[in-house]
């Protein structure tokens, strides 16, 4: 289990899972403090029509075009939500509900109309992805990690996810103080001269980048779970933002590993033959982590 088979079958999905989990959990920390926890949910629904249109334009499953489509759809939805909220004087949650359900419905309809029979693009894929399918065929053991020929055959999702993760880590580290200030007291941050509008837009855009990059590899459900569950669990464990973010990163990475292992090998341990969905299992494990924190977490109560 720890030899060649592990490297080619499990190493890459596990690494991608860890990258996705951390890339989503980092911005999630600030989103839940700002009451925008459902943005991950909204983004992962609205990008579907963009991805389908990107596919129809390109004619193949081309990541670049589909990413552009997803970005366009996300921007369009954000504009639509703001328009409905401002012009219609409708509460933000409801405006979001109108837009993301409509966009998702549009995406599903486009998907059913388009001829996607030859490619792995369908609603189920969009929802729970295919993490297990990202195998590294060229790997023949741990030595392959140093072999340029084998490395060239790595699934393209891994370097992309690593890049996105690096960008997000850089953003969080560089803008740590403004982000922290904005998350707790936006009015105070503004009086100090911080450009909070630009900063919160940057936060949302970065979350969208994380969601879209992850969406392709692991589907939307794990993205939504990782935006919320690890930061929420960490929030119940500590009162300091710094330790909250660190704890959420640890929880996210652990969740990804434990979820993947349980999905792949868990059924074998209880005598089943087939494995279960890794994306679903990772989401489930993150829920267990949150449940434990909600029951026993040292700072689970509201400060009065």
């Amino acid at each position: 289990m720890m030899g060649m088979e592990f490297v080619s079958l499990s190493l890459v999905p596990m690494l991608i899972g860890i990258c996705v989990a951390i890339a989503c959990a980092l911005p999630g920390n600030f989103l839940i403090l700002r009451g925008q926890a459902l943005i991950g949910d909204a983004i992962s629904h609205v990008v579907l029509p963009g991805i389908v249109v990107g596919f129809l334009v390109a004619g193949t499953v081309s990541s670049t075009v589909m990413m552009l489509g997803a970005a366009a759809a996300a921007v369009l939805s954000m504009v639509a939500i703001e328009t409905i909220r401002r012009l219609g004087r409708i509460e933000a949650g409801a405006a979001m509900g109108v837009v993301f359900t409509t966009m998702f419905a549009l995406g599903v309809l486009l998907l059913e109309q388009a001829d996607t029979s030859g490619v792995h693009l369908d609603v189920e894929h969009a929802l729970y992805g295919n993490l297990e399918g990202l195998i590294w065929l060229d790997a023949i053991g741990w030595d392959s990690l140093l072999d340029p020929v084998a490395l060239a055959g790595l699934p393209a999702e891994l370097p992309r996810m690593v890049l996105v993760l690096l960008v997000i880590v850089a953003f969080t580290v560089i803008l740590w103080r403004p982000l922290a200030m904005m998350s707790f007291d936006e009015g105070h941050a503004r009086t100090l001269g911080l450009r909070t509008t630009a900063l919160s837009a940057a936060l949302v855009i970065l979350s969208a980048v994380a969601a879209v990059a992850a969406f392709d590899a692991v589907g939307s459900i794990i993205v939504i779970a990782m935006f919320i569950c690890p930061p929420a669990a960490a929030r119940l464990m500590t009162n300091r933002l710094g330790s909250q973010v660190l704890v959420s990163v640890v929880i996210a990475a652990l969740t990804a590993v434990v979820g993947y292992v349980l999905a792949g090998y868990g059924p074998l341990w209880i005598g089943q033959t087939a494995s279960v969905s890794a994306a679903g299992m990772i989401a489930t494990v993150s829920g267990v982590a949150l449940a434990l924190a909600a029951i026993w977490g040292p700072h689970r109560r509201r400060v009065r």
Partner: peptide, 18 residues
């Protein structure tokens, strides 16, 4: 708990669905 309703909704939604 100290979590907001939006956080509660998002976590229940994703975990149950997962």
């Amino acid at each position: 708990t100290r979590l907001g309703e939006d956080t509660a909704i998002g976590s229940v939604l994703s975990v149950f669905f997962g």
